[in-house]
Design a protein around this nucleic acid. Structure first.
Length: 461
RNA sequence: GGCGCGGUGGCAGAGUGGUUAUGCAGCGGACUGCAACUCCGUGUACGCCGGUUCGAUUCCGACCCGCGCCUCCA
């Protein structure tokens, strides 16, 4: 299996540190607002990655943290006039709802920064002791980037450039403009924790170093996150962790691609972001997931109404293949060519676009077999489709549930069934005009009818 | 300015030194009372210029264009 490593800028043969086991850490959310589609992309990308690693037989220990203390959280809580922990509690709950709807499985562990203050302080203490960090006069503690000769190895940045490019008005207390805070002194009235350097709270970067080291050890296999975390966050994590432990921090660095909206990066600073829950009001969750999975995790994707609509049509087609048949028992269907092809493309840096092409090939088989009246083979292929779809977190619903999911239309399922019944009677009496009228009426409500030998089924289009 | 990524058919999106991506949309046909679904068939492609090669969309170099990071951001 080959994985693209941001650190070496190439695909590398993946060799876990401990055979059969994968230790993976992904930077999660800072919980001061609802998750947006960019978060969704990271969530889904690493969900697929962990699912596939498990499918490949690895014992995956997947840690994804929650940053539940930071400047933005305090600012927002202040704005809302609430205690910061009430805000983070609400947002964590919302995040878990969004994840569940997108079919993202829970990570093995979900550490929160505020529960790791002791470990954070211990790590900072160690860094000061070894001369990699210093307590400044203002109560902050900074990491000294000059003390780490490898600084910049992930982002390929040169320290001189960073220092030269630093904004004017940098913190006076810093020895070098590129130094970053490990511990921030508390401002009056702010929530804080006691430390050897006075009351304060951890900086953002040190949290991840402390949590990942505590949960996964000094060195682990995969560290992932969003594209904009590469610098400075991940660069800083490397500096902190490698200086604190004396060991290599991470073998493989993985970064997801950015989501764009109208040719612009979707970001909080641009204010052009869509929250996951906003999008889920308009599209079924699995369609959103299909959209995200249908392009490679490292590529940039454009969010648009059209692309979601297309994803919906395509997923509908796949579910049509599964409609009305009971898949064979998974264990009765040994791995075949499609399984092998699927593994081949996924082994190549998780090529989900290629994997979806395999799904379509399997769906094609099912439709062929059904046309030939070969129910048995159709059921076996259906088992393969559900099996492979499951690795991508797709096609796990009952097809009727997918087709008939209530999207807030005016008609209930019972109303629709009644109209279909009326139409069937009209058609039986050769009153096609009336039958078509009913069909058109349903179509106006977004209900599409599919006739087959066995009768008429419907879906919300 | 520094560092990095990318330019594939109407659109989305994989991949490859010589041979089918796949999907959506379109077109023709089969099925259907008519449709939908499904099936069969079908067209349009690799930014530009050089180089390497028997042969390059695929490798190398220049160029043009787009994008990301360099500042809180997934």
């Amino acid at each position: 299996m080959r994985i693209y490593n941001t650190l070496t800028q190439q695909k590398e043969e993946f060799k876990p540190i401990e055979p059969g086991k994968v230790r993976m850490y992904v930077c999660g959310m800072t919980v001061y607002d609802y998750c947006h589609l960019g978060h969704g992309r990271v969530l889904v990308a690493f969900d697929v990655i962990s699912r596939y690693l498990r499918h490949r037989g690895y014992d995956v220990h997947y840690v994804r943290n929650i940053t539940d203390i930071d400047d933005k959280i305090l600012a927002r809580a202040d704005e809302n006039g609430e205690i910061y922990s009430d805000l983070t509690g609400r947002m964590i709950k919302a995040m878990h709802e969004d994840e569940a709807r997108l079919g993202v499985l829970s990570p093995s562990e979900e550490p929160r920064a505020t529960a790791f203050i002791d470990e954070i302080i211990a790590m900072i203490h160690k860094l000061i002791g070894s001369g990699h960090a210093y307590a400044a006069d203002n109560g902050d503690v900074y990491f000294s980037v000059d003390s780490f000769s490898d600084y910049g190895k992930l982002s390929k940045k040169k320290l001189e450039d960073l220092v030269a490019g630093a904004r004017v008005g940098v913190q006076e207390a810093k020895r070098s403009p590129a130094d970053f805070a490990l511990w921030k002194a508390a401002k009056p009235g702010e929530v804080s924790w006691d430390s050897p350097w006075g009351e304060g709270r951890p900086g953002w970067h040190i949290e991840c170093s402390a949590m990942s080291t505590k949960c996964l050890g000094d060195t682990f296999d995969i560290h992932g996150g969003g594209p904009d975390l590469l610098f400075p966050h991940h660069e800083n994590e490397i500096a902190q962790s490698e200086c604190a432990t004396g060991h290599k921090f991470v073998h493989t660095w993985m970064h997801a691609g950015a989501i764009r909206v109208n040719k612009e990066k979707m970001s909080k600073s641009l204010g052009n972001f869509f929250t996951i829950r906003e999008i889920l009001e308009k599209y079924p969750a699995e369609v959103v997931r299909y959209f995200l999975v249908s392009s490679h995790y490292r590529s940039q994707v454009d969010y648009s109404e059209d692309s979601l609509a297309e994803a919906g049509r395509t997923l509908t087609k796949l579910y049509h293949a599964l409609r009305g048949i009971t898949p064979a028992k998974d264990s009765d269907v040994p791995e075949g060519d499609h399984d092998r092809r699927f593994a081949e493309v996924m082994d190549d840096d998780f090529n989900t676009a290629g994997a979806i092409a395999v799904l379509h090939a399997v769906a094609n088989d099912i439709n062929h077999y059904r046309r030939e009246g070969n129910e048995d083979q159709a059921k076996r292929s259906a088992a393969v489709l559900v099996r492979l779809g499951g690795v991508l977190g797709l096609l796990q619903q009952d097809p009727e549930a997918f087709f008939q999911a209530d999207t807030g239309g005016e008609l209930s399922a019972a109303d629709i069934e009644a109209m279909i019944q009326a139409r069937a009677e009209a058609r039986k009496a050769k009153n096609f005009a009336e039958g078509d009228r009913i069909r058109d009426e349903l179509l106006e409500q977004g209900i599409v009818l599919d006739d087959s030998r066995e009768g008429t089924t419907w879906r919300r289009g």
